[in-house]
Amino acid sequence: MIWLNIVIQGALVGGFYALFACGLSLMFGVLKVINLAHGDMAVVAGYAAVFLAPRLHLPELWSFLVVVPVFALVGYVVQRTLIQKSIDRDPFTTLLVTFGLSVVIENLLLEVYSANGQTVNIGSLIGRSWHPASIIYVSYVSLGVLAAAVLVLLALQLFLSKSGLGRMIRAVADDQEAAQLSGANYRHIFGIAAAIAFATVALAGIAYGMMTQFAPTSGGVNLLFAFEVVVIGGIGSLWGTLVGGIALGIAQQFGAHINLSYQILAGNILFLLVLAVRPQGLFGRKNAVS
């Protein structure tokens, strides 16, 4: 029963990891940009839910209805201006720019909202859970986040494989110059991909705030987890991201069961094992690594 609980709790956390990592995976897969500000943007979404949504007389639980579209818009604009400019200069510039962005965001948040921990207030829902067996408690919030992750990944998968715009995104991800020759304005497509990535990171940031406390500096450690998820699952595979997230969650719960201080260590060990045994990730294509 203990082991079953570890797997269940790990899978629940893993849902959040997958939701959080899919934007990172998309940015890297399509734009070839490693967004070092990814974690901080999630934190910004959390603050937006806590401080801005109440001004719109919106319960914090439903704040994502406003924050997610706004983030999508911001994503498009940031891509077409700041990130595109740095892509045009040279790929390494994007690393510097997103790192700079990360530092700026963190310090602005510290300046404005202080280092105090915040949570997205969802009322009594936070304490409720489903209790199927003696020691197993399934938190409704975590279950909701896992469901959201599966839905988002399913929607993304369908969008990319079936829709015309999704097909364009895949074409641009494969070869942007050839896509241009086929008449595609790749900058616009990049903008749309970034908008989707920003939207998912906003959702993840708000989900994080519902599950636990966050502070301006929470972005960094979560970014590390997101990288691990993408590598474990395999770059460019959305289902890989889900499985990677769940695998990382279970590994962490397993480590925590042995000794609470082993939680992050166990995740890192899984990450290193995958890198050593299957560097393309569980669902990755072999040539994606080269």
């Binding site: 097909r167 364009m168 895949r170 074409a171 494969d174 050839a178 896509a179 086929s182 008449g183 595609a184």
Partner: peptide
């Protein structure tokens, strides 16, 4: 292109479809 550059992760049909939808509008 001199050295062909297909969208390798898409089907042959999708390759042509992208061009038809974007290039030929």
């Amino acid at each position: 292109y001199q050295v062909p550059r297909p969208f390798e992760h898409m089907t042959v049909f999708e390759n042509a479809l992208v061009a038809a939808q974007q290039g030929a509008r």
